[in-house]
């Protein structure tokens, strides 16, 4: 017998299938070298709930972003189509606390490059 799932269950299933995952899952045993990927993020987040980050990886087909200190590290996967103007993207992310943000790019030749940046999420206050 076949059960028809409600539409949102299909969507949820699709979303779960497209999990960003972890760096190890993306690399699948390969190693990533440094250089060739720019990861921009603030040293200190103005607001841990909305931290601007951008990735720029000329020649990449896909870039994944991870917040290594979040309960679930996956943040986003960017896949660049034939009409992308640059392998560049910018978004805003949630960080549960001070941590390293990592980006990994998969290049057209199947190799990987990575970049890391520490973003401080602070309670705030004080000043000069």
């Amino acid at each position: 017998a076949m059960t028809l799932l409600p539409a949102h269950a299909f969507a949820q299933a699709a979303a779960d299938a497209e999990m960003v995952g972890t760096p190890d899952e993306f690399l699948a045993g390969a190693s990533a070298s440094e250089g060739g990927l720019d990861l921009t993020a603030p040293e200190i987040a103005e607001n841990g709930n909305t931290v601007p980050i951008s990735v720029d990886a000329p020649g990449a087909v896909e870039v994944r972003v991870y917040a290594l200190g979040n309960p679930t590290p996956g943040v986003a996967t960017f896949r660049f189509g034939p009409l992308s103007g640059a392998q560049f993207a910018s978004t805003r992310i949630r960080l549960a606390g001070t941590q390293d943000v990592q980006a990994i790019a998969k290049m057209a030749d199947g190799s990987y490059v990575t970049a890391m940046k520490t973003v401080k999420v602070t309670i705030g206050g004080c000043g000069g």
Partner: peptide, 25 residues
């Protein structure tokens, strides 16, 4: 302690870009 550590890092982080200026609470 979390508060003191947080403020201390905003003043005594060795990288100035991780400092906010100001003094210890």
């Amino acid at each position: 302690k979390v508060i003191l550590e947080d403020v201390a890092d905003n003043i005594f982080n060795p990288d100035p870009y991780y400092q906010q200026g100001g003094d210890m609470v």
